[in-house]
Simulated assay, not measured.
Amino acid sequence: MRDQNDRGVRTGRGIVLGAALLAAVTTGLVRYQTLLGAVHVALLYLLIVLLVSARYGRVAGMVMSGLAFLAFNFFFIPPYHTLAIGNPLDWLVLAVFLATALTAAQLLHRARRESALREAARVKDALLAGVSHDIRTPLTSIRAIAHEVAQDGDERGLVIEEESIRLTQFVEDMLDLSRLRVGGLVVASAINAADDVVGAALQRVAGIAGDREIVARVEGEPLLAGRFDFTHTLRVVANLLENAIKYSPRDAAVELAVRREGDRLLFVVADRGPGLPPGEEEAVFSAFYRPRHAVPDARSAGLGLALARGLAEVQQGALSYAPRPGGGSVFTLSLPAVDLHDSLSVL
């Protein structure tokens, strides 16, 4: 309530000061009433509207648009000193002026709001990065102590160690997501073989997969390669496989295929899970977002796909979703491809 009152007082002050400025400018212009063209008056009045909008907000700017419209008509549209209009074309002049003034006030308000949101997001990401960094040290200590307790035969130590590992991973994801947004994530792109990424990803998810079938294949050339950061790419592919395992039926295989299309190297992960409801195809890549049909899982914070897309884009790549024919999901990681024959000849 207090904020609303403060905004109201600020808007009122802006209207009063703007009206005073408008009156002063009008007094000066009236002396040259017959010499001034409509364009000169319109530009000066638009400047007043923009100044008031920039300083006191959209409402004050829109009120000033109305006042400037009336002053324009009364003092500078014949017959003077009346709101009547002799030339029908002057209606067009006034209508265009009013529409331009209102649009300018609205656009300026939107630009200021977007700028404020970007700044708030930047500060939030910087704060999250700092907090996440500071949390890692005590988590490491907790994990070490819990490990010692577990070795003494206390099962509670094992539980604490597992939970600390999960929390550490969450903090790492938060830290990397914040670094991505503020441009602080280190990327070391180099020529890497697709086979190496596939093998490492399968090893990483082996414990989660258990006896689940994962069908992996590299299509086309004997050795596909791309220019990317191996660690970041491995993280993305492993994340996609983990999601596919989580949401697929136990009797349905998860598929990982790698192929080249033009100058792009594609890692395609397909499953037979429920897929995404219409309209959630892009929302699923937002931080902390979980689909409406998501399997209840308190261990999932909804950061995986947001981080995966960020890691793809920072390597000049992309990550997209498509429904799978017959049911399920298809996630495609696209990265710059490299022709190994050309690369070796250059070397």
Rank of each mutant, 00 (worst) to 15 (best):
Q4H: 14
L17V: 10
A23L: 13
A24F: 07
V25K: 00
V25I: 11
T27A: 15
G28L: 08
R31G: 00
Q33Y: 01
Q33T: 02
Q33H: 02
Q33E: 07
T34P: 00
V39K: 09
V41I: 11
L43Y: 04
L47S: 11
V49T: 08
V49F: 03
L50P: 02
V52F: 03
S53K: 09
V59I: 14
M62L: 15
S65Q: 03
A71F: 03
N73D: 03
F74L: 07
F75G: 00
F75V: 00
F76I: 01
I77E: 01
P78D: 04
P78L: 01
P79D: 00
H81G: 02
T82W: 00
I85Q: 03
L89A: 13
W91P: 00
V93D: 06
V96E: 04
V96W: 01
A99D: 06
A101S: 07
A101L: 04
T103W: 11
L108W: 04
A111Y: 11
E114T: 07
A116P: 01
L117Y: 09
E119K: 12
R122M: 08
D125R: 04
L128V: 13
L128Y: 07
V131F: 07
I135N: 09
R136T: 10
T137Q: 12
T140S: 14
S141V: 15
A144E: 13
A144C: 00
H147G: 15
E148S: 13
Q151R: 15
D152S: 15
G153N: 02
R156L: 13
V159A: 12
R166Y: 08
F170S: 14
E172H: 09
E172V: 11
E172A: 10
L177R: 11
L180Q: 06
V182D: 11
G183Q: 05
G183W: 06
G184M: 11
G184N: 12
L185E: 10
V186T: 15
V186L: 12
V187P: 04
S189H: 08
I191K: 06
A194M: 09
D195K: 11
D196F: 08
A200W: 05
V205L: 08
E213T: 15
V215T: 13
A216T: 06
A216C: 06
E219V: 11
E219K: 12
P222Q: 08
L223K: 13
L224M: 05
F228Q: 05
F230I: 10
H232I: 07
T233V: 10
T233K: 02
L241G: 05
N243S: 10
N243R: 12
I245Q: 10
K246A: 14
Y247T: 12
Y247H: 15
S248W: 07
P249H: 01
D251N: 10
A252K: 13
V254F: 03
E255R: 12
L256N: 02
L256S: 04
R259G: 13
D263H: 09
R264T: 12
L266D: 04
D271A: 05
G273V: 05
P274W: 07
E280C: 09
E281Q: 10
V284P: 06
R292H: 09
A294S: 13
G302S: 03
L303M: 13
L303C: 09
L305G: 10
L307D: 09
V314Y: 05
Q315N: 14
Q315E: 06
G317D: 06
Y321V: 07
P325N: 02
P325S: 03
V330M: 11
P336Q: 04
P336C: 05
P336M: 04
A337E: 03
L340Y: 06
S345Y: 12
S345N: 14
